[in-house]
């Protein structure tokens, strides 16, 4: 059967089709963009959650150690048995940068008052993993040497890109050496400032997620 020419049939014109497709495409575009932004935000949230958890863990471990520990001036350090033999310059394991005023350190050790336990935090800025290591030392009353157990404070996912300990004062700032005639020996109260930058790679490319934390703890035990 042959259709007669010029007979108008109930289809769509080209213009109608084009308009319909344009509207459909615009609408689909909006839908896809919305979906993508939700997915992106969800992924970012997951990264931040991991970053938050790990950074918080590290800081809580450190602030707890600071609250329970002592930073001793060199000559009175009760935990020095192990170190005095090997490395006399770092008896105080807050390795002094030849200044008693706000040295910036990458290694810090807190010692229990009885001298039987200590915790050492070491940050190795050369390490690409973000090598922040905690070493827990214990010894018995009779033993001079400590037994150390290393605990990595970094994971594969979160790097510690920088870590500093600022301890002030380490030596008595009010000693006669510094303070003329009046010697108020050993009457100072140290504080420790922790300053750190944590980083987590963005698995989908782009800038890594970064979190910088800083806090200060006033040591609870008097020197």
């Amino acid at each position: 059967m042959r259709l007669a020419r010029g007979v108008r049939r109930g289809g769509f014109t080209l213009i109608e089709m084009l308009v319909a497709m344009a509207i459909f495409m615009v609408f689909t575009g909006i839908m896809i963009t919305s979906y993508m932004s939700i997915v992106k935000a969800l992924n970012g949230a997951e990264e931040y959650r991991i970053l938050y958890a790990e950074a918080r863990h590290i800081f809580d471990v450190m602030t707890d150690s600071a609250r329970g520990g002592v930073v001793y001036p060199e000559e009175r350090f009760p935990c020095n048995a192990e170190f005095s033999a090997t490395d006399s310059s770092s008896v105080v394991k807050v390795v002094l940068a030849n200044s008693k005023f706000a040295p910036r350190e990458t290694e810090l050790e807190f010692c229990a008052k009885d001298g039987l336990n200590k915790v050492k935090f070491t940050f190795d800025d050369v390490s690409e993993d973000g090598g922040l290591v905690m070493t827990e030392y214990t010894r018995s009353n009779l033993d001079e040497n400590f037994i150390g157990k290393e605990v990595d404070l970094y994971s594969d996912e979160v790097r510690v890109t920088s870590f500093s300990f600022y301890v002030w004062p380490l030596k008595n700032p009010f000693s006669s050496e510094n303070f003329g005639s009046s010697n108020l020996a050993n009457t100072f109260h140290p504080k420790v400032t922790f300053s750190a930058v944590f980083e987590k790679d963005n698995p989908r490319g782009g800038d890594p997620f970064e979190l910088q934390l800083q806090t200060t703890i006033s040591l609870r035990t008097y020197n």
């Binding site: 939700i38 935000a41 969800l42 970012g44 949230a45 997951e46 931040y48 959650r49 970053l51 938050y52 950074a55 979190l211």
Partner: peptide
């Protein structure tokens, strides 16, 4: 809403 995780940090 999802970004509140960022707010947490």
């Amino acid at each position: 809403m999802i970004r509140s995780n960022l707010a947490n940090t």
